[in-house]
Amino acid sequence: MTTTSHPCFGPSARASVGRIHLPVAPKTFARTKFAPEAKLPAAMMPEDAVAMLDELISSGKKIKVVGITGPGDPLADFDATYKTLKLVRDKYPRMNLCLTTLGIGGENYAEKLAELNTSHITVLVDAADSATAEKIYAWIRPSTKNIPLPEATILLMKEQAAAIKAFKEAGLTVKINTTIYPENVAQIENIARAVKTMDADIMGLTPFIPEKKSLFSAVSDVQIETARELAAKHIELMEPWLRCGSDIELEQPTSSSLPKPSLSRPNVAVASSGGMDIDLHLGHAQKIMIYGPREDGLACLLETRLAPEPGGGATRWEKLSAILNDCFVLLCDAAGETPKKILAANGIRTVISDENVEGTVDVLYGGGKKGKCKK
């Protein structure tokens, strides 16, 4: 796929090339001073995201590009990113894969991304030097802990440069996305010049648009036009397009992304203390309630199964997967990452909820069932 046929690069492709961003990145590397202080939305498990992709394609959506852009940074938890891209590549060999990242750690993952035939990668570069980066970022966390911002911004500059060079050496097409703030508007030409020396292919410039009643200022139209003219002297620019990036979604995850029953897995597993509400942490559940359709099609409580005894690490969750081998989903109030991953690998999606049991089960079977199950 060339830049002219990719919806994030070519204007003519935006209306004809279907694309979706799978939200499987659970962690982030940084936050700008201009971003709202909100907790990251929950990321999907790789298996769940691919199941959603399957459903969209089965429904007739002609998806040609799968990207990973959030809710965090795809390289902050590369295992989840790699697993998702590998699952998509194995199932859809002709699918175009791409991702958007700040670039930290990119040098370490370039070859693996190339092995998956990733077509494009976007690197978010908003500064040409650490002093400007300090004006833009609130914090940067390269690993598990924040480090002092002056030190972190220097590291960011080095990591981004190394990542861009490594991506190009691995044969990837590299796009640079730069947000224009009042703090960096005078430096846009320097950024364009720098990334071109690293062999970046194309650059996208997007002006920062503050929210209403925001204390932050926007750049003027004249500043934007001047910045574009100066940057274009050094690197090819994308046409202006405010909707480039993680906001592009073929379809927002709604009821279409809910797990669905199949012939081999028709039932729902529920962790509940009394059968009324979904109120148990999976690790505390001693029994699992099993709901499924009766002969008349109504979803009812079929039986209760004993959960494996606590302890045993991953083996406990493998045993639970075997116990629930006819279930397509498990409902619980909370669950750790290890059981969720093991259950997902065995075809059981974990859904976290504190809603009413029967109402949630009804939704999973399509809702609107006529009549109620008589116990």
Rank of each mutant, 00 (worst) to 15 (best):
His21Cys: 11
Cys373Ile: 08
Glu159Thr: 05
Glu47Asn: 08
Met52Asp: 12
Lys165Trp: 00
Glu309Thr: 12
Leu230Met: 15
Leu116Asp: 06
Leu282Pro: 08
Gly60His: 12
Arg316Asn: 10
Val88His: 04
Met238Asn: 12
Glu189Val: 00
Ala131Arg: 13
Met157Glu: 10
Ile209Val: 15
Leu230Lys: 15
Pro93Val: 01
Asp79Asn: 05
Gly312Asn: 10
Glu249Tyr: 04
Ala285Asn: 05
Gly18Pro: 05
Trp241Asn: 14
Ile140Thr: 05
Glu134Val: 00
Met1Asp: 04
Cys327Asp: 02
Gly283Phe: 00
Lys83Asn: 12
Phe216Asn: 14
Leu330His: 01
Ile104Arg: 06
Asn190Cys: 01
Lys287Asp: 12
Pro26Lys: 07
Tyr365His: 09
Pro339Leu: 09
Glu358Val: 14
Asp201Val: 06
Thr360Val: 07
Trp241Thr: 03
Val125Gly: 01
Thr304Leu: 02
Ala194Pro: 00
Thr338Gln: 13
Glu229Leu: 08
Leu301Thr: 02
Lys212Gly: 01
Asp277Arg: 11
Ser58Gly: 09
Arg294Ala: 11
Tyr291Met: 07
Glu303Cys: 04
Leu215His: 06
His234Tyr: 13
His281Pro: 04
Leu156Gln: 05
Lys165Asp: 14
Pro36Phe: 03
Thr81Gln: 04
Lys158Leu: 11
Ile290Ala: 06
Ala322Cys: 02
Thr122Tyr: 04
Asp362Glu: 15
Ile209Phe: 04
Ile57Leu: 10
Val88Ile: 07
Asp79Ile: 02
Leu99Gln: 02
Thr122Phe: 07
Gly72Ala: 07
Ser321Val: 02
Ser321Ile: 02
Gln252Ser: 09
Ala314Lys: 13
Leu155Val: 08
Lys233Asn: 13
Thr178Tyr: 08
Lys175Trp: 04
Val219Cys: 09
Lys175Arg: 15
Gly359His: 10
Gly367Cys: 00
Tyr181Thr: 05
Glu115Leu: 07
Ala152Trp: 02
Ile140Arg: 01
